[in-house]
Amino acid sequence: MYLSEVRRMLEVGACGLAAERRVDADIEHLRQKLDEYDAASEQGDIEAATRADLEFHQAILSASKNPFLASIMTPLSTALHDSRLLTTSVPQIRKRARHHHFEILEAIEQSDAQRAKDAMRSHMTQTSSDIETHLSD
């Protein structure tokens, strides 16, 4: 729950900044990470899908052009990895995450900051719900 709160606070704003500040190379990098996510997911390689998911979100932080955002997230890297590994292991969650990721990418690509923030907010809401529904014991 706490990790999701921090992610929501930081990543929603970062997504808006990424939409405003992104360059073509950022879009290519984001698209590459989503391709890697899809390939790993299709192969059932949960570790590789988790890594691609984390790198997609890291690429958004980088596209924001605010160096403090990535450094704020660094101490959370182990918790982020462990949480993602659990969620990525559930096929339905991967499918929902994929949908949200493409919505986020499209908004950033179109430089639509509000839509990007809304897409990330929706992704964070779905992630929190998925954790509560599928992984809380």
Rank of each mutant, 00 (worst) to 15 (best):
I72G: 08
F56E: 00
E55K: 09
K65R: 13
D45C: 11
L86N: 11
A63L: 08
F68H: 08
D45N: 15
S77C: 06
S62L: 09
F68I: 07
A70W: 07
F68E: 04
L34M: 04
E55C: 09
D82Y: 04
M73V: 07
F68V: 06
N66Q: 15
S77L: 07
D45H: 14
D38K: 00
Y37R: 04
Q32S: 13
D53C: 02
F68M: 07
S89N: 09
A59F: 05
L80Y: 01
P91S: 03
T88S: 05
A40C: 06
R31E: 05
L86T: 12
G44L: 12
K33W: 04
E47R: 14
A48K: 14
T88V: 05
D35G: 09
T88F: 05
L86C: 12
I72H: 07
A40K: 01
L85W: 05
M73E: 05
D35M: 08
Q92M: 01
S41N: 03
E36Q: 13
Q32G: 11
A52V: 08
D35Q: 07
L86F: 07
S77R: 14
R84K: 15
D35T: 10
S71N: 02
Y37D: 02
T88C: 07
S71G: 02
G44W: 08
K65A: 05
T88Y: 03
E55R: 12
P91V: 03
S89T: 10
L34K: 00
D45L: 10
Q32K: 11
I72T: 13
D38N: 00
T74S: 03
L86A: 10
D53L: 02
D35W: 01
S83Q: 14
S71L: 08
S83P: 03
H81E: 13
S83F: 11
L76V: 06
T50S: 13
K65N: 06
D38F: 00
H57D: 04
A63K: 09
F56Q: 00
R31D: 03
Q32T: 10
L85I: 09
F68K: 03
D35K: 11
M73G: 06
L76P: 05
R51A: 14
L34R: 01
V90F: 13
T50Y: 09
I72D: 10
P91E: 00
E47A: 15
S41E: 06
